[in-house]
Nucleic acid binder design. Structure first.
Lengths: 233, 233
DNA sequence: TAGTGGTCTAGACCACCTG
DNA sequence: AGGTGGTCTAGACCACTAC
């Protein structure tokens, strides 16, 4: 038993997770201190710290100075979803991607949009409507509003070939966003574009985007019937 | 300029993020090595490492040994959603929570469920139907199947007062799960329970849960019309 | 006020990957 | 083969907070 492999933070994390899941350490348990655990596992305190820090970020344990580390009773688990560009989603399905610009116009920002993005009065936005197809089947209808002031070059952009999402990603990547998922009923226009019956239930993703506090764009993406967003945790 | 405060990993992370967002380091840029950055920021390499590691986890940069750190061109951003218990969701709305057990029966697991959870042939499951109300308005219809073999004590549990979700959390916390969001159309039963018209579009969350590889439960939660799940990133 | 986690340091070794 | 990130160590100081 002299040939024990050295334990990494991942091994320690796995072991602690296992003890929590198997209720060796039930909810409410006060864990040994980092120093004590480091001694038990035969590693440095920094290694234990990293293992426990990540478990705390996931909400499984609660850490406070002086009090110590406690197994959380009612963990609020977090689910991570990867938000891809439509093209990627479709190509991941091994389907052929096609994009089409349905229409565009330059308008004053409507009230609901000003409220949504916190736009100043009198702001102008570029309003775009587009379709995304997978193997020529309707996949997603995209309606988008872009704040001219935040992205002046958008006035000269040509959206007949490249979608606004990909164009914006090239111009204004790494922005912050607020996302909402919901279910909506297909109206006449949506049912035509997505090739469904009126009244069909459709999955919708809305996203408002800011760059360093400045409103950039708001988009509504409505998916073909049957679309699901899934993940693990 | 001698009184510069020492930089922490958070300061470095903010600075790097800012340089990426402001396109000082545009997509594709090869960042200086950790050693070089540590010299520039006047800190240890471990500090730079932690700052960059977290940015890499978020998908903003791509790190490879020998090649170095590159600003990602098409970042796949991750959105985190907090998955709460219904009671919490309702109480967070300052509404009164009420739970009602609609029905329950012990059945052999249907084929689709066996496939979904990877249950062995001949497994028995407890099938539960419940309603959750916010201020006595229908909020969520819950249909759940619990694997008897994974949680034998479920046979003696009384679900007339406490919902199966909360009961399970107390018995089998910290399990792993697979979640899916979708939009569905209200059938006769759903429209009655949720007080909507038939054909209404409803938001649905499905979750399959395993504990250390063993299938525990599958649940379908269908929400009242207008329900949205939202988050930021 | 004392104990705990939060973080940083300086150094080291290793694994992976590109040239 | 060599350079880069991935990780660990042993020690240190600090900040928060329960007692």
């Amino acid at each position: 038993m002299a040939d024990e492999k050295r334990l990494g933070f991942q091994d320690i994390q796995d072991e602690v997770l296992s003890r929590i899941q198997s209720r060796i350490w039930p909810a409410g348990t006060l864990l040994p201190t980092e120093i004590e655990l480091a001694k038990q596992f035969g590693c440095a305190r920094a290694t234990v710290n990293r293992a426990l820090r990540e478990l705390a970020e996931q909400g499984l344990i609660d850490r406070k100075r002086k009090r110590g580390t406690i197994v959380n009773a009612a963990p609020v688990r977090q689910a991570k979803f990867e938000i891809e560009v439509v093209r990627q989603t479709i190509e991941d399905m091994n389907a052929q991607y096609r994009y089409s610009l349905v229409g565009q116009d330059l308008i004053g920002a409507p009230e609901w949009l000003r409220a949504q993005l916190n736009l100043p009065n009198g702001s102008d936005v570029l309003h775009l409507m587009c379709m995304h197809y997978a193997d020529n089947q309707p996949f997603q209808y995209e309606e988008r509003w872009i704040n001219i002031d935040a992205v002046p070059s958008v006035k000269d952009a040509d959206f007949s070939e490249i979608g606004p999402n990909e164009w914006l990603l090239a111009q204004v990547p790494f922005s912050n966003a607020e996302i909402a998922f919901s279910a909506i009923t297909a109206d006449a226009k949506l049912s035509e574009f997505l090739g469904t019956s009126q009244g069909a239930s459709l999955f919708r993703l809305e996203r408002a985007t800011w760059l360093q506090g400045r409103p950039v764009t708001f988009v509504r993406m409505t998916y073909q019937p049957g679309y699901k967003v899934s993940t693990r945790y």
